[in-house]
């Protein structure tokens, strides 16, 4: 480990190059959401973002009121930023590896509301449990 530490690592200089353009894109997407209820999504993984870019985005968007944790196929974090309607979504795998990171501009991300079929399946299961209970089983 000692020898490894002596290898000089030189991180590339990283000015905030893409964040200003991203903020403009978010503002335009919010306009579209207000006018025509159009959803928008920006895949952060497909952009070369430097740490300075990330800091600038975090600072400009701030922290909002909702933090959600989704636990299916690994964890996912869905956070509303300080700008209502802008959601920071991070999906990770079962091994905790980040799969995708995106900014969604919408009222609620599509992945949040319960799906009709899933509700129906859940209802079925609930009815079964009620029936089991009614018939005296535990």
């Amino acid at each position: 480990m000692k020898i490894l530490d002596t290898i000089p690592i030189r991180p590339a200089p990283s000015p905030a190059a893409n964040a200003p353009a991203l903020l403009q894109e978010i503002a335009a997407a919010l306009d579209a959401l207000l006018l025509s209820r159009q959803r928008h999504c920006i895949d952060l993984g497909s952009l070369p973002l430097s740490p300075a870019d990330r800091d600038m985005l975090r600072e400009a968007l701030g922290t909002g009121e909702i933090h959600m944790e989704l636990t299916t196929l690994g964890n996912s974090r869905i956070e509303e930023t300080g700008v209502p309607g802008v959601w920071w979504v991070r999906h990770s795998s079962e091994d905790g590896i980040l799969l995708t990171e995106s900014l969604e501009v919408c009222h609620v991300p599509e992945i949040v509301p319960a799906d009709t079929t899933d509700i129906a399946i859940g209802l079925q299961r609930l009815r079964q449990r009620i029936a089991v209970r009614a018939s005296g089983g535990q």
Binding site: D43, L70, L73, H91, L99, T100, S102, I111, T117, D118
Partner: peptide, 20 residues
Amino acid sequence: SRRAFLKFCAATTSLLALPP
């Protein structure tokens, strides 16, 4: 759930560098 399915699609789309 469908959520898992949507998550899978989001991850794959990102992997394939397709528009979100």
